[in-house]
Each structure stands twice: as structure tokens, then as C-alpha cells.
Design a protein around this nucleic acid. Structure first.
Lengths: 199, 199
DNA sequence: ACATACATATTACATTTGTCACATCAAATT
DNA sequence: AATTTGATGTGACAAATGTAATATGTATGT
């Protein structure tokens, strides 16, 4: 088995690589420290399995997943992440992810998952399956865009200039965002959206 | 060497434990999944080195460190963390930490650090030493308290009620906070303070 | 062709947030 | 005893934020 492992936290990347290599069935483990590097490596070589962390600099694991599917790279993809963000999970599912597991698992379980996806099976973390239908992101792309600006600390006026809208339009959008999220100020909206992985 | 490892993320805990155990000099690695568990285990057994993650449920690694020093437990303590928060670092230094390293290191380096502290040396991540003097928390305890409330999304009025002050007083405090942090709205202040580990 | 939805904008308004100057009182300092 | 300092409060104001009703042009569906 040839494996590509993309994970930004050196210690975990290093540890996982060493432990995976100890396994007889694993031929070689390539490493990437961010999404961009992962994509570069994927263009040079074929892997049986690609293991992606989500939150990485440059490009996220989800970005890499989308790139893999768009370019029809023939490989299994496993997402490993700390975060129980349903938004992340949803996006992964939409891109036909093979396995989605939380870092709350052990290495042995990860090994099992790897064999499992190579055998052609899917494997989703059950904790996430539960919530998936209840907490779907209610915001449109535009609204998400605006909420992201808010989360950076921009004022309405700044957002308006930034996105080439009138101040009033932005205020309207924000009003709708607050209504949808059932919050009554921008800070709460940002907090809620972050907790759910929507921004 | 007897080692206690406290880390909430199972995958990393598991991986680190396995790799540390592979080393001949390591006799046994005990595991804790949060700060509270770590303290319990520390009451039962003596360790040469305790390795603590900071952000854990129940009690943080810094809480455990403080407990160790207060109870005069004879052991070396290493903090490993993802976060370059100077506030964290400051608190660790004040409690006579033996080593403070970022998770951006490899396992081999961690092993070196362990030997190093057992030999009686200190080891601080150099990235953090640079900033420590430049970015000291300028806020008073009261101000931090208020900023925390803000970060939860409370309005001025709510904070006032919550802390038994007048609305105006809270506004004054916030005004001072914004001035100190050189920001012009509450969201930016929260963002900045979080990035620096002040709240 | 017509109705509907969508994105954008305007206006007016109420509320919240942030600034500033100053008041009060108690505790600490000189 | 007089002064300074710190914590708390007030009032007045400007600016930002949030709400709501409504308008307009474009695209979409039937």
C-alpha cells in the first residue's frame, strides 16, 4: 500500500507516519504539511489511500478532496479531523468521501479503516451521522461570504466597500443572517456559525 | 523512565504512547485523557516526566502544572501545545515549567527534550521567547472578565446585569479595552485577545 | 406572456455601541 | 490633613448596528 498523509501538525504527522510504516502491508508513506503540497505530490504519483486532515494552511483537506474528485484521481480518500463540524462532514459527503473519522480514535482503528476503504467500503463516524440532518447550514453562499467578513471584524461600511454593495444592502443581508441563525447580534452569529463549521 | 502523558486527542495520545514505548529507556507510559484524570493518576504514582497538552477538557495542562507545583510533586513537567499563545507561555513560565514545546516538532525532538529535562535543563520554544516581552496582556482582571462576556455574545446591558454594574460603567470599561487593544469594535477586540491567549 | 423568485437598493426608524467629560466616594499615599 | 488613585457612575453625543417596508430590474419557470 502506498499512502499519502497530509497533516499540518508535525508531531501527529510524524507519529502517524512512523506507526503506519511499522505495518507490513504499508509500502511507503509520503507526507504533506498542507493542502497545496498534497496536491503537488498527487500530481507526481499514484496512491492507494490519501489521508487528509481538514484544517491545514494554504488549502484544507476538503479543498484537496474536491480537487481529487474534479481531476478524477483514482484513489481512496480518508478525512481525519478533530472537529465535529457538520458543515465539514456535509461537504465531504457531497464529494464522495470514502471515510470520515474523528481524531478521537486510535491508530489501530485507523488501520482498520484504511483496509476497509481499500476493500471498497465507506465508513462514516457515527457521531456525525446523527446530527447531519438537524443542523444543515441555512445560509446562502453570499451570506456566508458576508459573515466571514464580519468574523474578521469588518464594519458594515467596510464590508460594503469590500464586496461592492451599498451599506444598506449589507445591513439587510446581516439582518437576514441574524434572523436565520436566530441571534440578535453579529458576534453571536459568528460564534454560532463557527461552532457549526459554516464559516 | 516512567512517563505520564496527558492529551485529549486519542489519536495523538495513542501514537505518542506507542512511539515513546518503543524507546529502550522508557519503562512505562501512563495515559490520561484530560487534566482531572492526570491529577488522579499523579496522586497514585511517581513519574520521572509528565507531558501535558494545554487545551483539554475538565482541567487544562496549565491547571495540572499549577497543581503539581502547589503540591510539591517531584517530577519534571513538559508542556506540548499547538498554540503559540503568549499568555499560555507566560503562565507556564510563572509555574516553573521545565520545557514548553510546540506540536510543530517531531517525535525525535520530543525524545531529546525529555532527556534534556531529566538532566535538569530547561527548554523553551524559541518562537515564543521572542514575543513574550512584546505582547504582554495589557488588560486588568476586570477587563478580561468583561471581554470574556463580550466573546460569549452578550450585549452591554446583559453584561451590566450579569456583573452588577451600570450599563454606562460597562461602556466605559469596553471603551478602555478597545483603546488598550487598539481596536475599534468589540469583535476585533475579542479576536485579538483570543489570538494572544488573553481570554 | 405572466408570475415568481432573487439580488440589490433606498428610506426611515429604533436600538446599541463607543467616546468623552466629568462626578462621587473610598482607599491608599504623602 | 491634603492629595492621588481607583472603581463606579452619569449624561450627552455621534456613529454603527439592526429592523422593516418597499421598489426595481433581471432571470427563471410554466
Amino acid at each position: 500500500m502506498d499512502i499519502l498523509l497530509a497533516e499540518d501538525q508535525s508531531m501527529l504527522r510524524d507519529a502517524l507516519a512512523k506507526l503506519l510504516s511499522l505495518n507490513d502491508e504499508v509500502k511507503h508513506v509520503s507526507l504533506a504539511k498542507d493542502g497545496e503540497e498534497a496536491i503537488q505530490i498527487l500530481q507526481l504519483k499514484i496512491f492507494d489511500v490519501v489521508i487528509l486532515d481538514i484544517e491545514m494552511p494554504k488549502k484544507t483537506g476538503l479543498d484537496v478532496l474536491e480537487w481529487i474528485r474534479k481531476n478524477k484521481i483514482n484513489t481512496k480518500v480518508i478525512i481525519i479531523t478533530t472537529f465535529k463540524r457538520c458543515g465539514y462532514f456535509e461537504r465531504a459527503i457531497n464529494n464522495n468521501i470514502d471515510a470520515y473519522v474523528l481524531k478521537e480514535r486510535s491508530i489501530d482503528e485507523l488501520m482498520k479503516t484504511i483496509k476497509n476503504v481499500i476493500a471498497g467500503n465507506k465508513e462514516y463516524s457515527p457521531e456525525l451521522m446523527e446530527n447531519i440532518f438537524t443542523t444543515k447550514n441555512p445560509l446562502t453562499t453570499q451570506e456566508v461570504e458576508i459573515l466571514k467578513k464580519i468574523s474578521l471584524g469588518l464594519s458594515n461600511k467596510e464590508i460594503a466597500e469590500n464586496l461592492h454593495f451599498s451599506n444598506g444592502t449589507i445591513r439587510n443581508y446581516i439582518s437576514i443572517i441574524l434572523m436565520k441563525l436566530n441571534t440578535n447580534n453579529r458576534l453571536l452569529a459568528v460564534k454560532l456559525a463557527k461552532e457549526n463549521g459554516w464559516i
